[in-house]
């Protein structure tokens, strides 16, 4: 129960951060991505702020085998550079650039009871479902 509550708190903090930062405003995200137009650099500070904090937490976590709540540390591989990684990231970027919404803000917009948020999240989940059969045809 403590583990679930802890994950819920992390999700809440994350969502509040997205709201405060402006990441959950698609127009602001597109303004950040529009480097050659009237560029709004705000969101570079979101990433900088997040990394400035998380860097120390991960440095601490990497040396341990278990979390405070006794769960095994699950950290993904850091070094495998694959075609899948690049192809997937490029596809994700195209989707992100089309609407200005990435997965976290999509969930926050859905939580704001915005129909556009529901549509986006539904389409994203469909994409995730489609990934499995598609995955077999890819290198």
């Amino acid at each position: 129960m403590a583990k679930l509550l802890s994950a819920l708190i992390a999700g809440l903090l994350f969502g509040l951060g997205l709201l405060l930062s402006g990441m959950s405003n698609p127009a602001k995200v597109l303004g950040f991505l529009d480097v050659t137009g009237r560029w709004d650099p705000s969101l570079a500070l979101v990433m900088a702020g997040a990394i400035a904090v998380a860097f120390f937490a991960f440095r601490r976590a990497e040396g341990q085998t278990h979390s405070v709540l006794g769960e095994p540390l699950q950290l993904p591989d850091k070094s495998r550079l694959t075609l899948r990684l690049v192809l997937g990231s490029v596809l994700f970027g195209i989707g992100w650039g089309l609407a200005g919404i990435c997965p976290g803000p999509g969930l926050v917009l859905a939580g704001m009871a915005l129909p556009a948020g529901w549509w986006f999240v539904a389409a994203m989940l469909l994409g995730m479902l489609l990934f499995r059969p598609l995955s077999r045809c890819l290198p």
Binding site: F92, G95, A99, I101, F120, M124
Partner: peptide, 8 residues
């Protein structure tokens, strides 16, 4: 956009 974000 949603489908591309999901697959990607």
């Amino acid at each position: 956009a949603g489908v591309l974000v999901g697959i990607g």
